[in-house]
Write a protein that binds this DNA or RNA. Sequence first.
DNA 1: GCATAAAGTTAAGCGTACTTAACTAAAAAG
DNA 2: CTTTTTAGTTAAGTACGCTTAACTTTATGC
Lengths: 154, 154
Amino acid sequence: MTRSVQFSQAIRSWMDVFMHRSMRGWGLFAKSTGLSMPQFSVLMQLHYRGACGMSEISERFEVTAAAASQLVDKLVQSGFIKREEDPHDRRAKLLNLTDRGKELIQRGIEERYRWVDQLAERLTVEERVQVSEALNIMTRAAQELEAELVQPVA
Amino acid sequence: MTRSVQFSQAIRSWMDVFMHRSMRGWGLFAKSTGLSMPQFSVLMQLHYRGACGMSEISERFEVTAAAASQLVDKLVQSGFIKREEDPHDRRAKLLNLTDRGKELIQRGIEERYRWVDQLAERLTVEERVQVSEALNIMTRAAQELEAELVQPVA
DNA sequence: GCATAAAGTTAAGCGTACTTAACTAAAAAG
DNA sequence: CTTTTTAGTTAAGTACGCTTAACTTTATGC
């Protein structure tokens, strides 16, 4: 078996385990908060990408501006999102998580962490070092890739 | 900084990147197939856990038996799921993916793989070895943990 | 300055995902 | 053999997410 096939297999096995687990986890967590998946996803996006306008929501989720507006409106009314006027463009809105919204997403993330912390407990000290180094490599690569996609190399 | 904090940070950073990316990816993929998230999740569950009865669907997704029945019915009508009588218990049904259902989920998974393959291209040969070994460690730990949860140690 | 484009909202209408309640049929318990 | 439990279905009703269409308000292009 070649090196690159070995690598692919390793990463595929891990993704299978991880994707299944985290999809299910997020679904149940969203349900436990009383939010729908779309609502929850909007909060997640604001958490990970920071404040944005209404149009970015509709682009990223591939829905019409109308749908985004209605979705956000419910989250504003539930107190998870602030919707303020953009000082630079009075047509536009600035959407951001409220403290309540931040707290909710943080709780969900913590729950997800808890699972991998359990995994960590099963590892030896040496394995932990090895795993942290590997994950740092992957994280860096992912961030570089993301940066290139947002602003492609000229 | 202690070893264990270092480990936690590494795994948290990676999860942040990965969770965000894969949540969004699955959402868009589900949308592109015309399936709703709940419908899609049922197919995912059948893929990862294999055939099961109606009651297992309702338990795992924490919905009523009625909801599960209706959800599955749509997937049967769309040709993604087979619903057969359980030979051992004529009240029960055996749910399973059809070839069409399998093919669809596989396509979704392949798309997710493609992202990490892009990551892999950014790594040196040594890094790839390091990462595969680490992921194998994590996968094994995850499988052990899963096995214990399903059948707790006596 | 005026036409046009862009950002967002509102309303009507449709399909989906849930719920509860009432049901059928088969298995298990006594 | 009868009662009760278990597995699943069907129907009615509610809420949500989405679309299109019509609209308001602010910025931009000529």
